[in-house]
Structure formats: C-alpha cells, structure tokens
C-alpha cells in the first residue's frame, strides 16, 4: 500500500469517526418524525399540524401557517432594520471622523460582549411601563438592541478592509462621496452585508426566549415559541414524534438556506474582501 493511500485512509477514518455519530442523530431525528413509535411503520401522522389546529397530550396548538407567516414577517423585518442601520453606521465608524467616535466604539464593544440576559428583568419592566409588552414593536426593539452592536462591529471590519484608494478613485472619477459609497464601496462589502443579513435572519428565526418572555398571545407566536409550548408545561408526557416533526419543519428551510449560502459563509471566514 502506498503512502498516499495510507494517508487518505487515516484521514477518512478519522473524519468518519467524528461524523458518524452526528449523522446517526440526524437519521434518528428523521425516523422519529416519520415512523409511528407504537406500530413501527412509516406514517406521516406527526405532520398533522400542517393541516390545522391539533391537540397533543392535552396541549392545544393553533394552526401553524399563521405562525409561519409571523416568523417570516418578524425575521425579515429584523434583517431589514439591522442591515439598514448597521451598514451606514459601520461605514461611519470605519471612515468618518466625528466627535465621540472613540467612546462610541468602546460602548459598541462593551455592548457586543455584554450578556443581554442579565438585563432581562429591567427590560421587561421598561417595556411594561412603555406599554410595549405583547407587541412586535417591543420585541423587535429588544432583539435589535441585543444583536446590532455585534453586527455593526462585523460590518466595520469589512469596511476597514476596503482600501481608501478605491473610494478616492471613485471620487476622482466623478462620484460624490455618497455615490462612491453606493457604486464602489457597497459592492466591495457585499459578502459582509450577506453575512450580517444571514446572521440576523438566523438569530430572529431561532428566537424563542424573548417570545416566551414578552409575548402572551398565541396569535403573535413564531415557530420557536410554538414548539416550546409543547415541552414547558409540567406533568405531561412529551410527544417526541410531534416535536421531531415540528423540528424538522422548522429546520428544513435553514438547512436549505445553508446549502445555498455556503459560498458567502466561506468568504466570511476568509476575511470577506477577497479580490479587493
């Protein structure tokens, strides 16, 4: 056996040892969702939630499609707001000189590494006082305050990587500062915008804690909170078949999304501005 084959064999054995357990869990997950646990035969009974309200082990679940709509509306609103705020803010932090920039940067850094959960009680009371509990506005404000500093920081890194020369070239080529930003700088930080859009989407899509805390009406739930309803009630035998089915329903879009956006993620890992 040649050395090369031996090397390949070692590498693949090692990788297999690491991935097989994970693969096993995923397969199990699919099986739990699609097989009846009593009869052991294939059935899609667990997916009944897709066709109307259901009741499982004494817990009533409303129809899922309005919840899905809620989830999408909520997630895309968060993405829009975060991108629209963090891109110009990061540009300013990276490129402009303004009063208080250093202190603002410090604040941003502290906010970024601050565990938001510790503030949750205060947040709750503030929202109560402002009459924003059980509203989307309230939850969006809280969610964005938590994730924006980190995203501004990531975005600033992307702007920092764009050489000044590029902006200057655009300005001597007949662009105003704003037009140079739009025509030359924005395309150069596209991977960064993609990255923060994905991060904020995933953050919003996976949110359940804030909903559990700040939203009381079933009609305003998103999928995360919807699933959580199944397990948080006490003295109930949990229907794992249903949870797996719901989980599958919940994660499938994200998995597909990952497969298609892999390229962008790879670029982010490299440092974003390849080719600039």
């Amino acid at each position: 056996m040649s050395k090369k084959i031996l090397k390949l064999l070692v590498v693949h054995t090692y990788m297999a040892m690491l991935t097989v357990p994970i693969l096993f869990m995923i397969v199990w997950y699919f099986m739990t969702a699609t097989f009846n646990s009593y009869t052991g035969s294939f059935s899609l009974d667990n997916f009944a939630f897709m066709f109307g309200p259901i009741e499982s082990m004494g817990i009533k679940l409303p129809a899922i499609w309005p919840i899905v709509l809620n989830t999408l509306v909520y997630s895309f609103t968060i993405v829009m707001i975060e991108v629209l705020i963090s891109v110009p803010a990061a540009y300013a932090f990276s490129r402009l000189d303004f009063k208080g920039k250093r202190n603002a940067m410090k604040f941003l850094f502290i906010m970024r590494s601050f565990p938001g959960v510790t503030l949750i009680i205060a947040t709750f009371f503030i929202l109560v006082k402002m009459n924003l509990v059980d509203t989307y506005l309230g939850i969006i404000l809280v969610a964005i305050t938590g994730s924006l500093p980190g995203h501004v920081y990531i975005m600033k890194g992307f702007f920092d990587e764009v050489p000044w020369d590029l902006e200057w070239a655009a300005m001597t080529d007949g662009c105003s500062r704003f037009r140079a930003f739009r025509k030359v700088i924005l395309p150069a930080v596209k991977p960064g915008i993609g990255a923060i859009a994905i991060f904020s989407f995933l953050g919003a899509y996976g949110e359940w804690f804030l909903f559990k805390l700040l939203i009381f009406s079933d009609t305003r739930l998103i999928i995360g909170g919807y699933i959580a309803k199944l397990i948080t009630e006490e003295n109930v035998i949990v229907d794992y078949g249903l949870i797996s089915a719901l989980g599958l329903f919940y994660t499938l879009p994200v998995i597909l999304f990952y497969i298609f956006s892999q390229k962008i993620f790879m670029k982010v890992n490299i440092g974003g501005s390849k080719g600039v």
Binding site: P163, D165, L166, W168, A169, T172, P187, A188, G275, V276
Partner: peptide, 12 residues
C-alpha cells in the same frame, strides 16, 4: 485622472 499605487480598480 488619477492612478493610484494600488491601482484601485473596481473589483466588482
């Protein structure tokens, strides 16, 4: 017209 040390071509 300006030529920069890094050439500053628009990469996109």
């Amino acid at each position: 017209g300006m030529v920069f040390q890094s050439y500053a071509l628009y990469p996109h």
